[in-house]
Computed example of a mutant assay.
Amino acid sequence: MTSRVLLISPAMNAALRQARFDDGSPLDSAGTARARSAADALPAADRTLTSPTVRCRETASALGLDATDSPSLNGLDMGRWRGRTLDDVSTAEPDGMARWLTDPQAAPHGGESVHELCLRVAHWLDGTAQLSGRTVAVVEPEIVRAATLRVLGAPESAFWRLDVPPLTATEFSGRAGRWNVGLGSRLGAA
């Protein structure tokens, strides 16, 4: 049995443009248009899921997907940093920001650590590997990072070394617990 998982990162929104931790901002008009232009580029899916965030739901809708919210695919809980810019947090809490970027167990924002996120995503991916066919999911970039680490057996310390641009697809395919990875295919017009 072969399982395929296609993870699509959300299109552009104000939070991404401003280097701000997600605050529930909707897609901007350019992000919506780009996602709509990519709708025909997606393969058929047996299951379609989405992170239950505004930008992922809106991206899924613009792509023409009738996706179901999956709490296991929710983005990283940023606690009290939610909605703040990276510059603001780096200035106000330089030690906390440095710990968060270097220690996967750290959660100085009071939310979820990278380690906790990686465990949650690994559990979801292991369950999905038991399903035949293709799962397409629109997910936050950190979900793509965590899944990639799991598939490659890479350490959590590599989490921040993976760039996940907006509206890109990362595909995992495999059987018997062995995955192959197709990284960062752009969807829609550049």
Rank of each mutant, 00 (worst) to 15 (best):
A41H: 03
V121R: 04
T170I: 11
G127Y: 10
R20P: 06
V136T: 15
I8E: 00
L117E: 12
R82F: 06
R4L: 04
D77Y: 01
A19L: 08
L131Y: 03
I8T: 02
V121C: 07
P165C: 02
F159D: 12
L183T: 11
P71K: 03
E140F: 01
T168W: 09
A67S: 03
A41L: 13
A38E: 10
L125N: 11
W160G: 05
G75D: 15
G184Q: 00
A45H: 04
G96C: 01
S61G: 07
R161H: 11
R36G: 01
M97I: 13
S29C: 02
L49Q: 07
R134A: 06
A62F: 10
L167Y: 08
A19W: 03
E58C: 05
M78Y: 08
S157D: 13
G111Y: 07
Q105P: 00
M12I: 09
S113Q: 10
A33R: 11
F172V: 14
A189Q: 13
R36T: 10
A38K: 09
R84H: 00
P166T: 12
S90C: 03
L6R: 00
L131M: 09
V54G: 05
M78G: 03
D22E: 08
A146D: 06
N180Y: 07
A15F: 00
L119S: 07
H123V: 12
L16A: 14
A15K: 00
D46R: 07
D95M: 14
R84W: 02
R186E: 15
D69I: 12
R99E: 12
S25N: 07
G79R: 08
G79M: 03
V144G: 05
L125H: 15
P141D: 05
L117N: 12
D163G: 03
C118P: 08
R80L: 04
R36E: 15
R20D: 05
D66F: 01
A189Y: 01
L73G: 14
L27H: 03
S90A: 15
T48D: 03
W81S: 07
W100C: 01
N13Q: 04
P104V: 03
G79V: 12
T91Q: 05
D46W: 01
A39F: 00
C118H: 12
D28W: 07
A92T: 13
N74H: 15
A39Q: 01
V151R: 11
E93N: 06
Q130F: 09
L167T: 10
R80T: 09
S37T: 08
R55L: 07
Q105Y: 06
D22S: 12
W100P: 10
A45V: 06
P71S: 10
A19K: 10
E140L: 08
V89F: 12
L6F: 05
A146I: 04
T168E: 09
R17T: 04
G174D: 01
S51A: 15
G153Y: 10
T68D: 10
V138D: 02
L119M: 09
G83A: 12
A38M: 08
L7E: 02
